[in-house]
Structure formats: C-alpha cells, structure tokens
Amino acid sequence: MSTAADGEDGRPAVPDTPVRLFVGPANFAGQGYLWARAVERCVPGVSAVSFAPHVPGAFDFPVDYRVPQATYLDDFEFHERHLAYVRGEFTHVLFEAARPLFGRSYGLNFLNESKLLTKAGLAVAVIAHGTDVRLPSRHAATYAHSPFRGDLVPETPLLEDRAVRNLARIAAFTGPAFVSTPDLLLDLPSATWCPVVVDVDRWHTALPPMERRIPLVVHAPSKSHVKGTDLVETALEGLVARGLIDYRRIEGVPAAEMTRVYTEADIVLDQFRLGSYGVAACEAMAAGRVVIGNVSEFVRDHAADACGTELPIIQADGTDLARVVESILDDPSAARERAAAGIRFVRAVHDGAASAGILQDFLQEGQQ
C-alpha cells in the first residue's frame, strides 16, 4: 500500500481486492501499519490501509493515512467524509485500542461506531494494545513489581477508569477481540493474541554481541517509571563502578534511529515492572542482541504453548539484575547462543506471518 496522498484529504486509493481492511486509529509503535502490511503480504486477496492522527511532539511511525489531531477530533465535516470513505471503500475494520475512528462525532466511542459500520455491512474487530485494557488494580494485586503499586504512576486512577470503560465496551462488542501482548489476556480472557510485528530484516546486523572487552548495555524506556528504570540503574551501579559494563540510558531518540542504538549494543534491558514483552524487546531480539527483562510465567507459558518455542528473553526481576548480567559476562558464548535464539523466535512469531494467520478468520468473515 502506498503512503502517498492519492485522494481528497490525502486518503489513499484502495485496490479492488475482495477484502479491504481499514486499521486505526492508534498505530502505536507503527503496529497498525505493520499489521496492514502483514495481511497484504500473507493473506491472498487482501489490501489494507492504516490510519492515525498526527499528535504534535509524538514520534512519527509509518502510516498510510494521517490527519492532524485537531481534524481527527473536532472537524465534523471531515468525519462525514471519513465515514463515507471507510463505509464505501472497505469490507473490514480493525479498531485499535478501543479508540474511535470518527473523533467526537459518535461520542468518542468505538462501540457506537462499530454498530454503525456493522449496519452498513462491514465486519469489525478490536485489538487492545496495553493501557487501554490493562487494569492497574488487577496488575497491582497480582504482580509484585507492578508500577501501579504506591505512587510510581500518578495517573493510575485515570488509567483504571479508562480500562474499566474500555473493557465494558469490548464486553458489549459483538465482533472478535484481539490483544497485542499475552499479558493482556489476563484482563481480556475472551480475546486472542495477535503478536506485535517487527520488520526483522531492518534490524539485521552481521555484528555479533558480546565481543567487546567491556560490553555496551542499553536501556531505552518509553516511560521510565513503568519500565523499571529505577530498578535497572540501582542494580547496575556496582557493575558500572567496577568498569565491567558501559551502560547507556536512551531517551528521546527517534524511532528511525533506534536501529543503530540496538545494533551497536551487546545487551538490551527491556522492562522490569509490567511482566510482559513488546515491540522494543522484539526489535532488540531481531537485532541479535542479548535481551533481559522481567517476563511473567503466564506470558512465557503462553508464548511457548502458542509458538512451540521458548521465549529467549533472559529473566531478571530487577533485584537480581546485577547477578544476571554478571553471569552473562562470565559466559559470553552462551549469551550469543541466546541472542541467536532471539532472532529465530522473532522470525517465527513476530515477522507478521503469525499475526496475519490470526487475523485471517476475521478477514474471511462475510467473504464465503
């Protein structure tokens, strides 16, 4: 699908395929765009368009169709044209993060919009990304390292309200529900895991990890209080002081430059409070880096059951991180083997083929 502006409002032209999928409006970490490309590549007879508003100050990920945030929210004439485009050109819609496609026109409520589109003959589904359905109260009660304990996340009450509201709307929704990471199945058990997607070839490097005298360890938190940066930096102080590692905290780097950051690293520290893994960990594995994170047994077991292969992220809960890193330094050969397993895992689970396969039944709905 071209990202060029092909029509009014910059709307892309839609190929005349039997199935035409519209994905939006979140595109977190470029996932809407990558799911669209995955189904085009892997499911015959499908074309797809991804959509997201441009939020000032946010990182720009590839997307097929972008409008200003103010247009998305409050331009009611645009909403009319946008609805006519979606209703007239597409057969299927995948709502991301329980967010609406048509701004305030239908109460900022994807459920209202889904009923409108279903009535027009479109098949609709929803995919949850994370905080849209993750209940802080459930997470804090069941996960010892949860960021939602104490006052680490001041906006926890707002996140709780949003998750409760979205879960209620999804419960009333009649279409299929998916989640992008396995941990979200604890909040939305009726859903199906549709893995996040990374462009594996983009992250490939011939440079092996763990060959420097002093390994480079990087941590690139999108939100430091949620990802456990405090645990990371407390744990690594001694190793840095002893000159055993070169530690770098990466923040504010555009997505396009993260390829360089990860391919230059030896060890990538993911997250230590959520108990899961997502796009960043997959990118680091695709780059052949040694990845460490705190991943719950539920997520590891689900990944192994669904994929038939062990998740290669090395386990550490934050409190034992220094010991885990030292064990890697003591056996770099074993660490390189784990890094190679990470590449194989991402190719098997996160290159888009598995995700397209999960979405295929939904895309065949109404096409028999």
Rank of each mutant, 00 (worst) to 15 (best):
A4F: 14
P12K: 14
P12I: 14
P18D: 05
P18Q: 05
P18G: 05
A26K: 13
F28N: 11
A36Q: 09
C42W: 10
V43W: 10
V46T: 04
P53R: 00
P53E: 04
H54P: 08
G57S: 02
D60F: 12
F61H: 15
P62R: 06
Y65R: 11
E77T: 03
E77I: 08
H79A: 14
G88D: 03
G88K: 08
F95M: 03
A97D: 06
Y106L: 05
Y106V: 13
G107E: 05
L111C: 00
N112G: 03
A120S: 06
G121T: 07
A128M: 07
R134G: 04
H139L: 05
R149G: 08
R149L: 06
G150C: 03
G150R: 06
L152H: 07
V153S: 00
R162S: 12
A168Y: 09
I170E: 12
P176R: 15
P176Q: 13
S180P: 07
D183A: 15
L184Y: 07
L184C: 05
D187F: 01
L188W: 02
P189W: 09
S190G: 15
V196W: 12
V200H: 10
M210C: 09
M210K: 10
M210Q: 11
V217N: 01
V218Y: 02
P221Q: 00
S222D: 02
S224T: 02
D230Y: 02
L236M: 04
E237S: 11
G238A: 14
I245A: 06
I250T: 08
I250K: 04
V261T: 09
R273N: 01
V279W: 05
A280N: 13
A281P: 06
R289K: 11
F298T: 12
H302E: 13
A303F: 04
I314T: 09
D317L: 01
G318Y: 01
D320K: 10
L321V: 04
A322M: 11
V324M: 09
V325N: 00
V325R: 11
E326A: 15
E326L: 14
L329P: 09
D331G: 12
A335Y: 04
R336H: 07
G342M: 06
F345E: 07
R347I: 05
R347T: 14
G352W: 10
A354P: 03
A356L: 10
I358E: 08
D361M: 05
Q367G: 01
